[in-house]
Each structure stands twice: as C-alpha cells, then as structure tokens.
Design a protein around this nucleic acid. Sequence first.
DNA 1: GAGCACTGC
Length: 805
Amino acid sequence: MNCFLSISAGKTHIMDPKNKMIKKRKLETGIKVIKIGNKTISLEGYLTKKTKTESNEPLPNPVGASAQDSQTGQTTLSVNLNPKEQQNVAENSKTRAFPGDPAYLKTRQGLPLWTRQDEIRGILQQDDVLVLVGETGSGKSTQVPQFLYQEQWCQRKKVRIEKDGWTEEVNVGGMIAITQPRRVAATTLAHRVSREAGTPLNGERGVSSNRKNATSRGLVGYSVRFDHRVPPGTKIKYMTEGMLLQELLRDPHLRQYSAIIVDEIHERSVDVDLLSGFLKQIVTRDKAGRAGIPLKVVIMSATANVESIKQFFSGATPDEPFDSSTVKEDPTSSPVRLLQIEGRQFPVDVVHTLKPVPDIQETLLKTIFKIHTEEPLQDKHGRADILAFLTGQEEIEAAQRLIEEYAATLAANVPKIKVFPLFGQLSMEAQHEAFQPIKGGFTRKIVLATNIAETSVTVPGVRYVVDCGKAKVKQFRPRLGMESLLAKPISKSSAIQRAGRAGREGPGKCFRLYTEETYGTLEKTDLPEILRTDVLGAVLTMKARGIDDVMSFPLMDPPDVESVEKALLHLHLLGAIDDEGGITETGRKMVRFPVTAPYARVLLAAADPKFECLAEAIDIISIITAGEDIFLQIQTEETKEEVEIYRKELYRREGDLLTYLNTMQLYVSENADRVQWCKTRKINTRNMKQALNIRKQLRGLCVKQGLMEQPPPDPQPFSPISPERAATILQCFLKGFALKTAMLAPDSSYVTTHGKHVVAIHPASVLHGQKKEAIMFLEHVYTQKNYAKKVSAIQAAWITDALEN
DNA sequence: GAGCACTGC
C-alpha cells in the first residue's frame, strides 16, 4: 500500500490510496462521537455521568445485608460477628508482642512524636481517618506504625463473606501498610524499624513469601519492585505506592490490611492520588467486601497545607464531576481528624534579594563567595557546607566552571573550595562523592544540585542553601499530544522545603535569589503530577480496577475533561477499551505489565503470530523503561572519538530502537566483564542492570501468561537482526505508537501525522541529521525545540497498516 | 547538537 503526504493551503494530511483521511475529526460540541479514520466511536458510554446511583453515592452497609459492590459488581454479604466470636478470632491471631530494641529506645523517646502516641492511638480507636502533619525529623515514618500494630483493631479476623451464592471464609486485617513514593525510602525505613523493634528483616528475597525455607518470624517487612522481604508474621509492611496499587488489582478491599499509612502525600504522585481515591471509596462506602471491618487510614504529610486533603477524605463527594466547589458533607462517614506534630528543625534565616536578579549565574557566584568568605567553615554543630538549587545539568556545569575559576584567585588565607555537581544523570559514584565529607580540613564543600536534593537525597553537612527559585518541570499538553520540559518558578512549599535543607544539623541560612515580593507571587503548592502528565495510565488503572465512570472517581485534583477524553480515545485506539468505554480483554492483559499502556500494547502485538518478536520487543522496552538513555554523554572530543569506535558496532541504521536491541543482545552475549564492556562504550551500567531486571520480570510475566516459551538462559551467542526482522519489530511498535509518526516534508522538516507539527530529531538519536521517508518516535518533548526522541526509520505505508488492525 | 525527579505482582 502506498501513502502520500498532501500539503495544501497550509494543511498537511496523510492520505491512503482510498483517499480516507487519517485524522481525528474535532469533537463537535453536543455530539459525543469521535471519528478516527473510518471508525466512529460513541463517547456516550463513558463521557457522561452514569445515572445509576450506586457508583456515585455511599452505600448503606447494614449488618448482614447484601449490597452491590461498587467496584467489582459482585454481590457481597457482610457478616458481622457477635462480640464473643469476635473475641475468639482475636485470640486466634493474637500478635506476639515485640519488646523493641532498648538500644534505640532513648532516641525514639527523644522524638517529638513520642509523647503523642496515646493521642494517635486514641483517635484511631474512635475514628477511621487521621491526617498527620509532621515536619522532617518528627519520626512519623518510623514511629506511627510501631504505635499502632498492637491495637485491638489491628488484629486479623476470620470472617465469612458471601459471594455469588458461595460462602467464603476469609481473613481481614492484621497488617499495616506504609506507602512511600520511592523504593529506597521504603527499604531503608523497613530496615530502620526492624532494628528499632529488634526483629529480623530476613524474609525471603523474591516474589513468594511462603516457600519452604521460610525464615524466622519478624514484625517488619517491605515490598518494592524486584525486592520483597516479608517475613512470616509481618505486621508492618513498607512498600512503594505503585506496589499497593498493584495489590489493589488483586484485592480491591485490601483485606490483608487493618490500616494503610500513606506517607509523603504532599509529593502528590499520580500513584498516591489514585490510591487516595481508592482508599476514600473503601473508607466511605465499601465495607461490605471487608465484612464491615473498617480500614483505618493515616495520611501523613510534611507540609502543613492539608486542608484540601482533609476535606477530600471527610467523605465530601463532588455533586458534579470536576466541580469541587459544590462539595457537600456526607453524614454517614466518620470524621477526619487532624494532628500537627512539630518538627525537629533548627531555625533557618531566610534572606531575599532586594531587587530582581537579572543574571542568576552572576548572583549565584557572588552569593556563594559572600557566604564562603563571611561565614564560618564550621561550628559546634559541625561542618557548614553550601547547597545550591539550580534548574538543570547545563546550569550546574556552567556554575561549576565559574566557581572554580574564581576560587583559584582567592587569597591563601581563605579556605579552599571544592564543587560537587549533583543531578540524576550522573553516575552513582559521582553522586556518591557529593555525600562524602570533604577530605582537606581547610576546604568548604559546595554542592550544586537539581531538585534531586529537595526530596530524593539528603546531603549531609549543609548549613547554607542558595535557592534560584526555579525548577524544570515536565508538563503534558493533551491538545498537542506532547510534553514540555521547561524551567518554571517553584512553589512556596517547595521554597520552604529547600530552605529547610539548611537546618537539618544546626541553625542555617537560606539565600533566595529572588525578592520577597516574588516569593509572595509563588503558588502555594506545586501542581500535582496528575495535572501535569498524560492521564492515559491513570485512566487505564481506574478502568482495570472496576471504575466504569472515570469522571466521577474521587480525586483530590481531577484533571480537566479534555485530558480524560484524550486518554479515553487513546486507550480506545490501543484496543484497551471498547466502544462503550468498558475495558477489553486486551486492556486487562495490558495492565498486568509494569510498563505504560503503549508499551504494553506493543508487547501484546509482539506475541501475535503476525509479528512474533516478543523477545526482541522485551529487550527494547526493558532498556527504554530502565531510566534515562543508556548512552552516557561524552564530555571531551578526544574521548568521544575513542568511544564512538566501540559504539559504531551498536548503532543500527533503522534507528534508536534497533540500536537498543543490538546493545542488549551484545551486552548479554558478553561473558567476560560486563562492567568494563559498558565502560569502554560509555554506557550507563546502572541502567543496563536495571534493564536486565525488567527484562527478566517481563519475560517471566509473558511466560506465565502463555505469550512465549521459556527463553534460553544467557549468555546466548550474538547474531545480528536481519533487515526484514527489523522491519517486523518496527511494525510491531507502530501498534502502540501509530500516532507518534512524522513524514519528511519537501522542505526537509518532519511533520507529524497527528497534529501536523514540525518536529526535529533529537541530537541524542542515532538518526539525528538524517532524512528518512517517515519516522516513528516514542517520545515528543518541547525544550528548545519540538524534539522527537527514540526515533526509528519507517515506511509511511506501515502507519496505515498499523491503524487498520 | 542537548539531558528536572520518581515509580510498577
């Protein structure tokens, strides 16, 4: 089939020979129908609010009465036990008391939270939801679960639940989950608490926790991707937010748990927002599935700005979707209690500039040297190093050069300076250097960091913070189907957080490179991620967990209707939802993969006999989802030439995807020294290892779902992919990315088939500077320009093929 | 010729 690009009157359309336009017709107001190619999709089923009341209103939950389960549609019978029975089950599963390690007791008793434990217990004995504000250092993440696990309501109870005419005996409760936004936080907190409690944390590594070689009982466990340690008898389980969201897929009522503690909610990840919605549903109306046994929810935030969160959990339900101004109190729900705990921060003096700063770099330099020459190198609290928050790598490297140049001119009696850059793309070793105490005694450490130092890592020894007032933020533009990455002013909350980094070890100072007036104009909080990213994944997550009417799912900050519509259309195009908006079998298979929807679609297509390239698709997707680009940038021209000799062997003329595949296949065929292999090619070892983990996980999932045979173990001899096979693989990827394509225009620019934007191939792509008939790109980001990333050369005809099924 | 930060049975 031939395609051609017609450009007329400033408009470009791809046409197929039958002259059918491959273009989404604009949604006409009033008519809830959308056309893609020759397909007409009714939006009626999922864009309009359901008239059925059960999905919107709280369920009455009388004892022993059957009720329609709003999430699963199953009819359940809640069985409430009489007091005697209740006592029996409690006796059966009585928790063994862990005395706690006395070595840690004194430290624990010194925490601001220690004296409030009875209050916390008292509140949760009465009510189900507690919002706890505790600043950094209050000890909330480690102490709250230890205060609660021996509570009566935290015992596991054996109950009978009637489902589809069957009486099922199930256990409800017994564990407390504490969610964390990051894996490291979950694992380190679990280790810390297990030490405090004096119980081992040596449950099994791996997915299953009930294999034969079960180890000794323990109180504390954790569960993050690729790493699960849940000893038998675990009562306190630290886990990532995504992990609990996964568990919700299997168990919509979270029956394993007596309580969920949501930590660091102020970071407002998409996962925590979704989780909050599900928790609200369970708390306010979904107790039938738990046989009436309540789920306690503790929401923990480091910032005081929790009024909206409190209101959200108080059972207030929006009258109309997306209109939070018309909330009304739900009289059936229990009240939400609020508790504020003071932190253990030292005071931080905040200094603003008197006038707006025209040149950030110059003012940064001046400020740093003013601190360096006027403030002591150390005091009784310890070192007094400087942490500066900048927007990105480029800015950091420029500042480093300036500071080092100027430092060389300093007099001999002034302390020396050592600058450490700190950003995500740095190698592990380079990041680690920024955390080490300085070696020379007469030297001050200056760390130049991105936002990474605001939440993800803590730099020790910092007493001075310099804050440029900006951060790079990724924002998705649903109308353009692309995202942008630009430096934007930070929020007040973020500015306070940055300043706080100066007061961890002693009284500190924060120098803001903006005026107090500018500070006043900053937004109170950052825009939550769900309002900044493509909600495709969020919508699929909801659909897979039984939410038919995604518009009225409770969210603290609902995305606008247009974003949700776009996501629904996109899901429909991927085959994840049907014309009525219901999740399809394909959609259900897709959510089982720990990758975004388009990649999941590619995996399913790859398993199709038509393509049969699942092993290859997994290799590519593993590398892409492992993190940033595996190819590290090369600093000097000299090393670049050297490295390029080795990299040449990896590059494929078909583009980045085949280059990734080639790299993975050569990497796993390498038998001698994989670390050295990466080093000579300047490949990010950490990401390659992560890619191998993901590859193993995806292969395992695919084998389990019968999509592929058990692949042979590594290392396998390398044999390059044939051009024909390469074409098949790329056509398979088009099943997930048909809309992310562009055609070469007569003026040598690339014009997207969807949206008609001019895109440039990103310099990091192996196809940069090349002209191909058509390209597919997996990412589309506006920074300096409209960039297409992860680019492959394709034939235009493949695009229509992919759209036609 | 360019790269905020996280995450997933």
